[in-house]
Write a protein that binds this DNA or RNA. Structure first.
Lengths: 193, 193
DNA sequence: TCTCGTTCTGTAACAGTGTGCAAGTAACAC
DNA sequence: GTGTTACTTGCACACTGTTACAGAACGAGA
């Protein structure tokens, strides 16, 4: 049942997960779902818990601590993008911590391996995670569902600010998010080592 | 009318903005609202446009480019936190770019003043904005509305990972977000100068 | 004055959402 | 047989965004 719900979300996005829709998919009534899971919130928590377990930390490559920290952080980013629907769902429900926690543990371990413990490790961890979160928001944002005149590129294209032409053009152009992610993350990581 | 809607959102949060609620507040019928603004999406766009204008860039303090860039970036963060309800609304509707754009222009201007133009300026701009976004998500997250067992601190408190006790304790403790924001942002900014 | 078109508002409904309640069925224990 | 428990169903409530339709008000032209 939570498995079916997970499939539904992965296949058709977070908004497809309605109680009636899931019930139909399972050929039961909504009440049956409620008997089993309690509420929509608890269903979502269960989905995320299940997905979280499946998110067993892949082995981290790299020799230097710096490389390994980057790899652990990139893992979090990549698996979130890979399962974007679940990630969005978790974000909407405020359960992203729950989803990412196993991967966060792996990151913390690499930070310790780099010599950071206690408050210093926590600082680095949170700094890195906040950065990842920022890029996730950008990556998971569905550009297609955003009104054309609210898009960043459109806004810059029609901006008449007192800026260099080349700057405006560059801001109006699409950007290479993974590259941007790597550069920024590297800066954050290096500042903590 | 969009003014009233803006008040409603600021006072009671994004979820309070329903068509019927707004209609009642204005002592009219929902149909009237629809006639004037078209749809809920367009209403929200209007609200954000209005708020965006009011977000006229405050003067930026600081003498060195580094200081002024930090100030411009902190402005974006602070005004978003200050009007958290509108910010959440914009985020939900994918219109955050629209809301922040005037402040982004100010940031871009400071980057140019620091000698960055074209693609280099765009790179720095986006790197900084992504970082701000990440911290905004954390700042606007309503901890009270999150199930206790999904909270990050709770998760770390009950973690049995192979980590130093002091590290786990530090991760389970609450954190000073503004301080964390400053440290991280500084690292990102410095990496681009 | 009468009519026509435009602008605005209200009534009532549609389709969809999460959720709660009373009743029912089937299996198992005594 | 009689319970008791696990599970299911049907139906309703309160809420959401949205819209088809019926008017009211009002100024322009005949």
């Amino acid at each position: 049942m939570v498995t079916k719900a997970l499939e539904l979300v992965e296949a058709e996005g977070p908004d497809a997960l309605t109680m009636r829709r899931l019930a139909a998919e399972l050929d039961v009534t909504t009440t049956t779902i409620y008997w089993h899971v309690g509420s929509r919130d608890e269903l979502i928590t269960e989905i995320i818990r299940q997905q979280s377990e499946q998110l067993a930390a892949r082995p981290i490559k790299g020799t230097t601590p710096r490389q390994r920290i980057m790899a652990a952080a990139t893992h979090i980013w990549e698996s979130a993008v890979e399962h974007r629907a679940i990630t969005s769902l978790a974000h909407q429900s405020g359960a992203s911590s729950l989803l990412q926690h196993p991967l966060e543990v792996a990151l913390a371990a690499e930070l310790e391996a780099a010599g950071l413990t206690g408050p210093a490790a926590a600082l680095a961890q949170r700094s890195i995670l906040a950065t990842i979160t920022g890029f996730l928001v950008l990556a998971l944002r569905d550009e297609a569902s955003i009104r054309e005149d609210s898009r960043s590129t459109t806004l810059w294209a029609s901006t008449e600010a007192d800026l260099d032409r080349s700057t405006i053009d560059a801001l109006a152009a699409p950007h290479d998010l993974p590259k941007l992610f790597e550069v920024t993350l590297q800066a954050v990581v290096d500042s903590q080592l």
